[in-house]
Amino acid sequence: MTWAPAFLSNPERFMAFSRWAAPMFGVIAAGLAVAGLYLGFTAPEDYQQGHTVRIMFIHVPAAQLGMFAYACLGVASFLSLIFRHALADAAAQAAAPLGAAFTFLALVTGSLWGRPMWGTWWVWDGRLTSVLVLFLLYIAYIALRASMDDEAKAARAGAILALVGVINLPIIHYSVEWWNSLHQGSSLFAKGGPAMSTVFLVPLLLMSLAYMSAFGSLWLVRIRGEVWRRRAEAAALRAAAG
């Protein structure tokens, strides 16, 4: 674990790494998505879900990434709060809009799957409500950061909000076990291995890896943007000071 703060503490090393890593992750994501979508659309119908099973290949990875991005936001916020390092704060700030977008996709695609399968667009059960709370946490974090002019105060307030929100992650994960829910239990990480056929498991894993690579690529691009923004603002201040 010692490499992570050391890596984060050196913006020049990060900029050199992200310059080639961001496009590389993007290319990997595109390749995996093409393979995953091909296998997903050529897979047979599910005996219960019919063709709607294809929505799972974009819904499940979106939900996974919504949570993973929040875990990244939490870790970066923790590092920013403890070490007061600008790059950790930039990483937290860059993760929030991406996480919000993935969570939005999970909610919308889940709703589009739920209408034909459950007969309803939405139910206020533990899983759906806790994912909606996750989306609102992202929006609150983005709004809080945008509402404060002082970068240091915004970073601190945002980090505290993000860390409080981390408690929602285990709630989302265990919601289907703790409460009665229309939402199915864990299929990928079920005890005794994945509880699904290989024809569905392979495209789902490919799409999960594609989403993960896409997030990695976009996160690096957004952190780079944040670094340039902060450097530009510092340069503008220096120019104004003469």
Binding site: H59, A101, L112, W113
Partner: peptide
């Protein structure tokens, strides 16, 4: 069957990815 739910799910996903 259910194309009216599947197509919007993929279109919305593509639009959001494009936007990101």
């Amino acid at each position: 069957k259910y194309a009216e739910f599947i197509v919007p799910a993929f279109v919305i996903t593509a639009v959001v990815f494009g936007g990101m």
